[in-house]
Design a protein around this nucleic acid. Structure first.
Lengths: 137, 137
DNA sequence: CTATTATTGATATGAATTATCAATATATGA
DNA sequence: TCATATATTGATAATTCATATCAATAATAG
């Protein structure tokens, strides 16, 4: 028989938290589970997040310079990160055509995918910054 | 007077190595300088790579899960990373239109830029893999 | 129910980068 | 040229995020 994955409570808990959060980090998933199930280990959370994202049940969002985020939404979309507060939001409806094929023809690589992250300032932080510059006058 | 940057030998050495390398890591820059100038500190290399990339003299290529690379080529282009050997190559001639503006309209963010990394298998590793599958028959 | 082994919790380890701080060297301007 | 202010350095500690190790435990096939 093929070595099957096992449906452990820990794995179900990790999946549940991801399904009920927006773009959680491993740390957030760990702390959230811990309130109801204090025995869970951080390593277990990391292991299950990896397994679930490798399996395609959830999406891993690697962020350069900070902790990876995970996403319950596995449809094609991108993300924007706020450089002020670290917020992360979906960018839907962006059609880049077949950039993977373009990159493949360009380089000779067999392209399996790409990572695209936008950086900027979220509406909330923009508002705060505008307020501040008013105060300073 | 404005607090000016100083043109230290260490800074010049870091700049030189980046200008004469393809996509070096901080570690590579450090080791390369060290052969001629053994007193240089790794922290100094990191500090100068940050300063030079913030200043726009060089480009920082953040790679999720591995060490950042730096690029002497500051023109608009992207990169492909080989998942087998870690090689990194330029992807030129990719026109994504004004995706930053699209993302901005989509999210309400003020977008300052984006990071796009392609993942795949470089031609050399493809060749090795083909050889192997032939051997196995 | 039992045997196999995937998975867990605890913890050590690792890689990459930043922070700290006294000593030093660079640029300004007298 | 020389003195001064301070940006920068080297050495090293600390941090962050993540993976490796390993004996104990628990999930599943038969």
């Amino acid at each position: 028989m093929a070595a099957a994955n096992r449906n452990t409570i820990q794995r179900k808990l990790v999946m549940n938290v991801v399904q009920n959060s927006l773009h959680p980090t491993a740390e957030y998933v760990y702390k959230t589970i811990k309130t109801d199930y204090p025995d869970i280990s951080l390593g277990t959370v990391y292991r299950n997040l990896s397994l679930l994202s490798n399996r395609g049940d959830i999406l891993k969002i690697p962020l350069p310079g900070s902790a990876d985020r995970f996403d319950r939404d596995i449809s094609l979309h991108y993300h924007a990160v706020c450089s002020e507060c670290g917020a992360i939001d979906d960018v839907h409806g962006l059609d880049l055509g077949d950039i993977d094929m373009d990159a493949s023809q360009n380089t000779g690589y067999t392209i399996s995918g790409h990572t695209l992250i936008f950086t900027g300032i979220c509406p909330e932080c923009q508002a705060k910054i505008s307020e501040q510059s008013l105060m300073e006058e």
